[in-house]
Amino acid sequence: MLTITTASSISPPLSPPPAPPITTRQPPCQPINRRHLLLTSLTIAVSSSFSLVDSSIPVASGRGLLQMPPPRLTNRYFLVRAGESEFESFGIINTNPVAKTSVDSGLSERGKKQTVRAALDLKTLEACERNCWIWPSITQRAYQAAEIIAAVNGVSRSYIVPEYSFLDARGLGAYEGKKLEAVSEVYESDSISSTIRPPPIDDGTPNESVSDVFVRVTQLMSILETQYSEDTVIIVSPDSDNLSILQAGLVGLDLRRHRDLSFAPGEVRYVDPSSIPTYKQPKSAVYKCLNPPNCN
């Protein structure tokens, strides 16, 4: 007997029961610590950069505060005193930094002519033949001098770098407003000790010794020697003392004798480390001043 089997009559094969859903216990969400992530990424970056450094390559030594006198200079330097100021034309001492940007502290008509001659002297010396940097004091007469120097020598104004404090005129304290002839008393004290300061005054004018000025011009030279290399730098000062004290330090001259290197208004001088003036015995080796600056 033929038996016909239909699909409906066939029992489906038994299949394994479905696996229960897998549930994992998730930890509670933690807030992202962005500071931690930043520090971690920085640490990784720094570590990676150090690992890329070849220890066989010598590390360049940094240049810090310049030692005076320096064993060598990286750059070529010209020292320029700005021409006569309006106050100097009236024979008045004016060193208060409060008024250094005032129009009254600018160049006199004679001072402008002196500065043009200085600019022409620099051109003759080919100071800016291969370009140069001009570093003037922000004092009005020094900055005006820098602009004249730049114009005569074809230097872009972008190469004028104003200096805001290291090249201020030497503060003469109680001598402020006196006749220029009174400066001789300050220089008499300078020749005895580089640490003697002019008498103080309460109008904001500093009273600086030779040593005080020496510290800031040394700081200036340290900046220039670090910032530039194999360049020409023209330093423009509003007075003589900044430059005479700087040059004395550069050539190793006793600072008490900086007056021997004094600059006339509009004078230009190339820094020659080998030019040390003939030595003169300082007055302090002969007698002592008991009542500076009156040392008769």
Rank of each mutant, 00 (worst) to 15 (best):
K100H: 10
T101V: 08
T101K: 13
T101G: 02
V103E: 14
V103N: 10
D104H: 05
G106E: 05
G106R: 06
L107I: 01
L107W: 02
L107E: 01
S108F: 04
S108N: 09
S108L: 02
S108I: 01
E109P: 02
E109C: 00
R110W: 01
R110C: 04
R110H: 07
R110P: 00
G111F: 04
G111D: 05
G111E: 04
G111T: 03
K112Q: 10
K112T: 03
K113N: 07
Q114R: 08
Q114E: 15
T115R: 07
T115Q: 04
V116K: 03
V116L: 09
V116P: 00
V116M: 04
R117W: 11
R117C: 07
A118G: 08
A119Y: 03
L120W: 04
L120V: 10
L120I: 10
D121N: 14
D121R: 13
L122N: 01
L122S: 00
K123V: 07
K123S: 11
T124C: 08
T124A: 15
T124S: 14
L125M: 12
E126H: 15
A127M: 03
A127W: 04
C128G: 09
C128W: 06
E129F: 12
E129R: 15
R130V: 07
R130K: 15
R130A: 13
N131P: 07
C132I: 02
C132T: 01
W133H: 15
W133F: 15
I134N: 04
I134P: 03
W135R: 15
P136L: 13
S137P: 09
S137I: 05
S137H: 12
I138S: 14
I138E: 12
Q140N: 14
Q140W: 00
Q140R: 15
R141Y: 10
R141E: 06
R141L: 08
R141S: 13
Y143V: 00
Y143A: 00
Y143T: 00
Q144E: 15
A145Q: 05
A146G: 09
A146L: 10
A146D: 07
E147S: 12
E147K: 15
I148A: 06
I148F: 09
I148W: 09
I148P: 03
I148H: 06
I149Q: 05
A150I: 09
N153Q: 12
N153L: 12
G154K: 11
G154L: 08
V155Q: 12
V155D: 09
V155T: 12
V155C: 12
V155F: 11
S156A: 12
S156I: 02
S156K: 13
R157M: 06
S158P: 01
S158K: 14
S158Y: 11
